[in-house]
Design a protein around this nucleic acid. Structure first.
Length: 386
RNA sequence: GGUGGGAUAUCCAAGUGGCUAAAGGAAGCAGACUGUAAAUCUGUCGAGUUUUACUCUUCAAGCGUUCGAAUCGCUUUCCCACCA
């Protein structure tokens, strides 16, 4: 079913469930574990595809909800498909839009998914209704109403042409009860079957589809969902939905989900990107991650650093006054363009002066940092040190 | 020299008798950010302490009116405009 795709596990750690692998796609090979960089609207924010490639990144993603609304799948196709349009001739993934059912339904993502509080949004909710057919939205761009269904999502993803596509699901929120989570999971399963059916109808062997495991924070539901995805003809699987309100809860959800997944398929952990969380995921057998964290953090003045050199913190805030006279690089050991050429003092100044190149430089650094971090993880696995 | 207008916290700027340590910006300081409606959002922002509370000093300066003044009156200083 996936002649141009393969996933080969090249090494398994003797110390944990961590593994190294080669994920082969029509646009190239991804060494796993690896990180998928987010170019939601068909563009990485503050960095060009060429600069992204220079960091050694191997795969990026785009989001079908955003591209569906603007500029539309047909325009992407007119431009020769997603890879050609965005100038990235390496593997690409598209997210199905399931996350937007959640994020546009709650107005604020981070607080809700981590369970910090019941969100009271300043932005209006644009999710109108979730029915068996699909999710009905009001466009945040022009207010027109749209329906995103499994069939529509898969057709759009087919037309847009990423290598790896995701089944259409509902990203289950945190502040819902077990009953809602269970029913949401069942509906996601039905949507995933429809996604798979639509995928098979349009399949031309250039794409592979991942199923998505839901079930919220409930171990038994995660197990049920993992077994559902594993027993259907998906090429790989992604773990989605709410992973709980604390790191401990997330670790537990990831661990108990990974107990029940199909071991020989590539496994993706959706939306996770802190170093510690990635390390934890890898030890549970996760192969790929995606997250806006490195790029968003960069635009806000956060530079990723080795926590062991920074009191355990994964980033520094370059806006802080302590960097005014710091003429050293962000990292002495980093070989990125930013660290090779510019000082913390200068980047601090750029942020204070609101020069947009500051965020661009930190984006280059953070992306490069994550590429190096994932490479380091692969080396540790090969040596069975994690 | 004359007439009018003005002087508010680091800066800009509301406020014309009590609800004012004083709106709003900006700057400053700090925090958050995990399948991106985010180059965004939040807190703090006179001083001090026993810091979810209390004390002290503030609206050019001084004097006064009043139970009470950034707000009203007089004088002084400095700015701006126009007229000589």
């Amino acid at each position: 079913m996936y002649p141009q795709f393969s996933f080969e596990i090249t090494h398994r750690s003797s110390k944990s469930k961590a593994r190294c692998g080669k994920l082969v796609t029509p646009h190239g090979v991804i060494s796993t574990p690896n990180f998928v960089f987010c170019g939601t609207k068909g563009a990485m924010k503050a960095i060009t595809a060429e600069q992204l490639e220079a960091t050694g990144a191997e795969i990026m993603l785009a989001n079908i909800y955003h591209l569906y609304l603007q500029p539309g799948p047909d325009v992407v196709a007119e431009n020769g498909g997603l890879h050609k349009m965005v100038g990235w001739n390496k593997p690409m993934l598209t997210d199905s839009g399931g996350f937007q059912i959640f994020s546009l339904g709650h107005g604020c993502v981070a607080d809700e998914i981590k369970g910090r509080r019941n969100f009271v949004g300043t932005k209006g909710k644009t999710l109108l209704e979730i029915s068996e057919e699909g999710a009905h939205f009001r466009s945040y761009i022009d207010g027109r109403t749209h329906c995103l269904s499994p069939e529509i999502s898969i057709q759009a993803q087919h037309k847009i042409g990423a290598d790896i596509i995701l089944a259409f699901d509902e990203c289950t929120p945190f502040h819902v009860d077990r009953n809602y989570t269970a029913h949401s999971m069942d509906r996601s399963h039905r949507w995933e079957m429809r996604s798979l059916g639509e995928f098979k109808r349009s399949n031309n062997n250039t794409q592979a589809i991942y199923g998505i495991i839901q079930g919220g924070i409930y171990g038994d539901l995660r197990r049920e969902s993992a077994e559902f995805v594993s027993t259907n003809a998906f090429f790989g699987q992604a773990i989605g939905g709410s992973l709980g309100g604390t790191k401990e809860q997330m670790n537990h959800v990831v661990a108990c989900t990974c107990e029940h997944i199909e071991n020989n398929r590539p496994t993706h952990l959706l939306g996770i990107g802190h170093m510690g969380d990635i390390l934890n995921g890898v030890k549970n057998g996760i192969d790929t991650f995606d997250c806006v964290h490195p790029t968003r953090l960069a635009r806000h003045g956060g530079a990723l650093v080795d926590p062991s050199t920074n009191d355990g913190h994964e980033s520094i805030n370059i806006n802080n006054a302590r960097f005014i006279h710091d003429t050293g690089p962000i990292s002495h050991t980093c070989t990125c363009y930013c660290c090779q050429k510019f000082s913390r003092s200068y980047i601090h100044h750029l942020f204070k002066a609101k020069e947009t190149i500051g965020g661009q430089l930190l984006t280059i650094h953070n992306v490069h940092f994550m590429v190096d971090f994932m490479k380091h993880i692969r080396e540790l696995i090969s040596a069975s040190e994690i």
